[in-house]
Amino acid sequence: MSVTIYHNNRCSTSRAVLEMIRESGIEPVIVEYMKTPPTHEQMLGLLLAMDLPPRAVLRTKEKVYHSLHLDDETKTDRQILDALLAHPELIERPIVVSEKGVAICRPKTKVLDLL
């Protein structure tokens, strides 16, 4: 089975999900999205696969969330998507992609549905 994890090593949940994937016997493709942010097309693909709007993957406790006034409900999906791409720290993590689907694995046990 092929598995990809959009991973941030500074995040304990992301590290735990990576460990769970490996413990299942799978060596995933690791995308360190803070170093290599997804392209516009990749992010759109992830959102479509999860059936989520851009706002649903925003990390609302990040400083940049407040400085960009992303809590403003009049912000369009395009504005939110642009913010996610320009500031990858705003992307909720980890996102896991497998043949069984795509999900934000919070709580970490959500990864089990994808393995």
Rank of each mutant, 00 (worst) to 15 (best):
I30G: 05
H40M: 11
A56I: 02
I95N: 01
Y6C: 02
Y65I: 10
R10S: 15
T4M: 09
K100W: 02
V29Q: 13
E62K: 02
K100T: 05
P38G: 09
L47E: 06
L70N: 08
R78W: 10
A83Q: 07
R78P: 02
T36C: 07
V29A: 14
L18Q: 04
I30F: 09
R15L: 05
I26P: 01
E32V: 05
E89D: 08
T36A: 10
E19M: 13
H66L: 14
K35W: 01
D71K: 14
L48T: 15
I104W: 00
C11I: 10
Y6T: 05
L47C: 08
L84N: 04
D72Q: 08
V64A: 06
K110H: 08
Q79C: 07
E19V: 12
K61F: 13
L48V: 12
V102H: 01
P38V: 09
I21C: 03
E89Q: 14
H66E: 13
P53G: 13
L115Y: 01
K110V: 11
P94D: 07
R106P: 03
L68N: 09
K108G: 11
P38A: 09
G45I: 05
L44M: 14
A86M: 05
H7F: 12
S98G: 09
Y33L: 05
D72Y: 12
L112V: 14
S67E: 15
